[in-house]
Design a protein around this nucleic acid. Structure first.
Lengths: 236, 236
DNA sequence: AAGTGGTCTAGACCACGCC
DNA sequence: GCGTGGTCTAGACCACTTT
């Protein structure tokens, strides 16, 4: 706590950060309570709270009402974009992860204009499902699928991944146009993915085509950025 | 402000959020000052500050000491991973973005073990540079390049993108293994990219190979997640 | 009931940007 | 010098979890 120029709360969170990184507080372990830290650093509660907030904001810890503040695990699961959603289950097994699907919605709708344009139709099946990895809700997949395909495989789609389902039924996906960006959890997403409001999310946005360049599916899949990494190999 | 169960600061930030989304406060515009908002909502300063903090945390606004709080632009630049760092300048021109490089470091070093393994050598050239898009520091590129290549093209590498420099000199990159993940700005990154501590960053991590499957460059490029989207096309 | 974190207040002082 | 946001205090009450 040398430099007077650095705010107290920052100095304290830096000390706590160091303690986490050097293992003084191990992963999963509980930090001292606000009261204990107040005494330890001789500052007011609001300053300790601010310091802890900094840690949470940096993804190093998470607070649980009535229980305490805990050190977060920094490990991430890696998913290959090339195989993602196609060989998803295999990919996960390889990493020793248990995956499950929680079906939310399936209905015929009139998609937003941009999606209508992509799919070349003013009607489509909309589906949303949550992917649980080791029991943790990690990805929310919201997608629009061509009406006829949706109707044909409705039941199967509700309990399985979209792409493997299509493949199993002889519909081959030959190209995926995708983008990855970072957003932050709004009300709805924070509930579905069980994260605090504003938590960073990685959004995987995709359009899948068959061998005739016909677009089959358009989807957007926000995922927990603290749990996932996406990998891709680019060949010239 | 109906439900008593929702904290005041959340109710207020939701109102402000709506105002931003409906254009009451336009992009780039200044929000009312804390004092004005205190009167408007009849709450204490700390609650207004918390509400504004929520907006900032959700990436909707940014606070500037001594100036005020401003509505953030939500537009992002899209970069194709396939062409990224190879046709970077072209990609940017296409989007009407002015790009520039700010050289930070260039030196021969002994890279960390993991990088030594990737490059198959215990010595390499380390370079770090900042990419400015329309004058905004958006990407910090830190990379290790094979010793001989680094020495050979040292001067050129300091003022230009790595991959185009290699290509211009007849070194062909035929494969890139990449990953994308989200982290949060630490002290150093928050200074280089001019963002607050803890701000989400998209990290593009890559290894480039030539046609003989020899690894040439290993790099890690944190970028501002509020400014960039990465795109990729996957063919089977 | 005890202990934890979450919300909120009123008020003080400081640091930065602009006129 | 003024207005802005940034830091910090002491203290109150509430909500959740565990015992």
């Amino acid at each position: 706590m040398s430099d007077r120029r650095i705010p107290l709360h920052l100095q304290i969170s830096q000390v706590l950060r160091q303690r986490i990184e050097t293992g003084v507080y191990a992963v999963g372990e509980q930090l001292p309570s606000e009261h204990q830290l107040m005494e330890q650093f001789q500052v007011s509660r609001i300053t300790i709270r601010r310091a802890i907030h900094n840690l949470v904001h940096q993804g190093l810890a998470s607070a649980q009402h009535g229980r305490g503040v805990f050190v977060k695990n920094q490990c991430k699961w890696v998913y290959s974009l090339s195989s993602l959603l196609i060989f998803f289950e295999e990919d996960m097994k390889r990493q020793g992860v248990q995956s499950a699907i929680c079906h939310l919605e399936f209905q015929e709708v009139s998609p937003p204009p941009r999606v209508q344009e992509i799919l070349g139709s003013d009607l489509a099946c909309f589906q949303s499902k949550i992917l649980l990895l080791d029991g943790i809700p990690a990805i929310l997949d919201k997608s629009y699928i061509l009406l006829e395909l949706g109707r044909q495989f409705a039941n199967e789609l509700k309990t399985a991944m979209t792409f493997p389902t299509l493949e199993r039924n002889g519909i081959h996906i030959s190209k995926i146009e995708a983008s990855l960006e970072c957003t932050r959890a709004d009300q709805q997403l924070s509930e579905h993915l069980a994260v605090p409001l504003g938590e960073p999310l990685l959004v995987y946005c995709y359009t899948a085509y068959d061998q005739y360049q016909r677009s089959l599916v358009y989807g957007s899949a926000p995922s927990r950025a603290d749990l996932l990494t996406y990998a891709v190999t680019i060949n010239r």
